[in-house]
Each structure stands twice: as C-alpha cells, then as structure tokens.
Amino acid sequence: MNKAEILIIDDEAQIRKLLEITLQSNNYTVNQADNAKNGLITAENHPPDMIILDLGLPDDDGQSVLKKLREWYTNPVLILSVKNNEEDIISALDNGANDYLVKPFRTGELLARIRSALRNSAVEEGDTTITCGEISIDLEARTIKKNNESIKLTATEYRLLSLLAKNEGKVLTHQYLLREVWGPGYINQSQYLRVFIAQLRKKIETDANRPEYIITESGIGYRFISKEE
C-alpha cells in the first residue's frame, strides 16, 4: 500500500479533522499545521509527498505561502479554499499549485485529485507512453489509440492532447495552453483553444457534448482526466 505523507495547512479544526479521517482511512499518513508559519516549518523539517493548503490563513495569505513553498518544494500542492473566483484560482495555479478544489467539496473528488496529483509526480521524464482509461498516447511514435484503434490527429491537436495528457488530472489554464501549443503571441486567442478542444472531443470522446476525458474548468482552463480505475 502506498503510505504517502500529506501535510494539511488549514486553520479550521473541523476541516482538518474531516481531512484527517478521510485521508487516514484511505491509507495516507497525515500531518497538520493550523497556520502559515507552522505549515512552512513542518514542510521544511519533514518534506511531505503532498501538501493540501488553505488560502485563508490567519497569519499569512495562502498565495504567499504557496510562493514561499515553491522556492524549494517540488511535490504536488493542492489548494483547498472557499474562494471560488477565477482570479484566485488562476493566480494559485500560476503560483505553482497543481490543483484547486473549492470548499464545500466531495471527498470522492478530493481523493481522486490527490491520487492523480501523486501519480503525476511519479511519472518519469523517460516515459514514452501515457495510458488514460481507453486512450493511450505513444509519445515517441506520436500516435494515439482509443481501445487499440488508431485515431488520426492533426499536428496541433496532437500537441494539445499530449500536453493535457502529460498533466493528467491537473488544470492547465487557457493562457498556459495557448502559450505552449501556439506560442506566446497567442495567449489572448482563446477561440483557437475552443476550436481545437471541440475537435479533439469529437475525435476521442464517446459523446463530444458530454466529455469524459477533457473537462472544462469554466473561466480557468481544461483538465484531462482518466476514468477512475
């Protein structure tokens, strides 16, 4: 069993209790801190495999804690916050958060996000194939298969899909995708992204209108998820 260690930085005792029970019963080891200062000290003394960070801490802004962590900490950081506006979410992702979940949240959803974040950080640079549910991507041959049937993609579609799939489970912002796939001059051309996402969905989703792989995060970006095992 994996015994990944997760540090919770949240000032609300109720949330910490809920997370502790949820995570421990799913075989994670849990550490806790109730403010920014303790959180940073605990993380430094004993670097966890993952950190769950609240944005509204009593002694410091969560975004600045995130920036301080990212100066040295490379494992996943998941933001768990009541703030649900797009600016906060985008700046948390820009500041290096791997994922963002808004309170109130479903514990099933939280566990899925934790699993995929930990799985992602375990992906090695040298991996040449990515498999997500029925879809497999061969990064060397640059081919995509769904249920072992080849899917023909254009060059741009391939770049977009492989970028999403390499970051499975993680929200990639519109700006990030536009910059990586089309180039820095295109970061405001979100309609390009919409077109290619729609085309990709037609090719890989069973029902393009009810996508199961490429999920929209309204106003923020897209997330590629593999159907739960």
């Binding site: 797009e86 519109h174 979100s190 309609q191 919409r194 729609a198 209108n209 009810r210 929209t216 309204s218």
Partner: peptide
C-alpha cells in the same frame, strides 16, 4: 462580467449536466 469566447453548446451541456 468576465467575457471570453464561449462555445454555447458547451455552456448549455455543462449547465444540464
């Protein structure tokens, strides 16, 4: 309002979902 390009089909389906 934070206006950006929207695929209306997607908006409708997301609401219905």
């Amino acid at each position: 309002p934070k206006k950006d390009w929207c695929d209306i089909i997607e908006v409708v389906y997301d609401a219905v979902k």
